[in-house]
Nucleic acid binder design. Structure first.
Lengths: 183, 183
DNA sequence: CTTTACATGTAACTCGTTACATGATTAA
DNA sequence: TTAATCATGTAACGAGTTACATGTAAAG
């Protein structure tokens, strides 16, 4: 049920529409909890029904009307409570490693290209993190406390990405040597 | 649909019952794709229906009967095909970082203890990896190719865990200084 | 006689994905 | 008039979780 909490997290900063939330997820929170717009719209509806969010239709000039959501006092209380609760352990789910369990002389080239693809994706993500860091998190010690939390999350993302690249290089080396001298 | 593939991966090595599979997941494959016994039993049934697995009831002495599953030629073919397919990007889903986005002077102590809890869990996992490595993967270069893949997966797990510990220490330091001098 | 390990399941529910559907406004 | 951006949804399905249910056999 963390998507609901991720949505409310974003709404603590600013009132937003479903569409704006979807963009906000793409730009930041979604690094740690991905969501499609469909799911966001559904969860917004549920949160409204539970009175954790208020909604109002806002007409716009030159654009279709949007539905703005704002967190209610009950919503804030629910968030405070949630942060206090113990979260369950992160779930390990990644095809890539299951595929590695299936490594054979036949599929080495396939796994090499899969790793190269992942490597490229992770590098792109790292560029993005670097851009955000330079733009908003140059001096972490001087940030207000809320921003420090975000900084720490992004810092994890950065280190995690760098670690992946490092591992990936070693893995590619090993796989390449498998390909060259198959047994 | 990767749980089905993870199950077949395990069955490539050995015929197993649902119960044995659940244990195998706890001991190794589950590091990368967690599953409960309920889900495993359900997926085994589906895989049997699709003729990717054969099942037979095996009586045992001193224990209840078990249902042994074996991968069929069609199952092997499906696995080969799956490894060849492009896997979708890994899904980022972790409460912890969403909670960090909610950092405030009120919940700093809570997040500190959450991090300490995680740190402990990761250390335990690292001990386990280390034990496995010493037992079975001392000389990765000399392993048969399939085992090299598993080695690489475990190696990723190890590096990933170590990276987390490192990040965690930095994060705890920052959070502790927040607690000491609140603004 | 009680606990632990072995062994297999069902039902209800929530979460997440994919495909489909609609429509306004602006710029080329 | 066509494409791009903004904006909100529904329906069907598949994946995953939680709670519940049942029973055998060994060991203490």
């Amino acid at each position: 049920m963390a998507l609901q909490h991720a949505i409310m997290t974003a709404l603590l900063e600013d009132d937003m529409s479903g569409f704006e939330l979807a963009r906000a997820f793409d730009a930041s929170l979604g690094f740690f909890w991905r969501a499609t717009h469909q799911q966001i719209y559904q969860e917004l509806k549920k949160l409204s029904q539970k009175k954790l969010l208020d909604s109002k239709s806002v007409p716009q000039v030159g654009k279709p009307r949007k539905i703005l959501y704002a967190i209610t006092p009950a919503g804030r209380a629910a968030m405070d409570k949630w942060v206090y609760e113990e979260s369950r352990v992160q779930e390990a789910k990644d095809d890539l490693f299951v595929k590695l369990y299936n490594l054979s002389s036949d599929n080495v080239p396939q796994l090499i290209s899969e790793l190269e693809r992942r490597r490229e994706q992770v590098m792109q993500r790292l560029y993005l993190y670097e851009k955000i860091r330079r733009g908003h998190y140059e001096n972490p010690e001087t940030l207000p406390i809320r921003r420090k939390g975000i900084y720490l999350a992004l810092d994890w993302g950065t280190q995690h990405g760098e670690q992946f690249l490092q591992w990936c290089d070693g893995a590619l080396e090993m796989l390449t040597s498998c390909k060259d001298m198959p047994t």
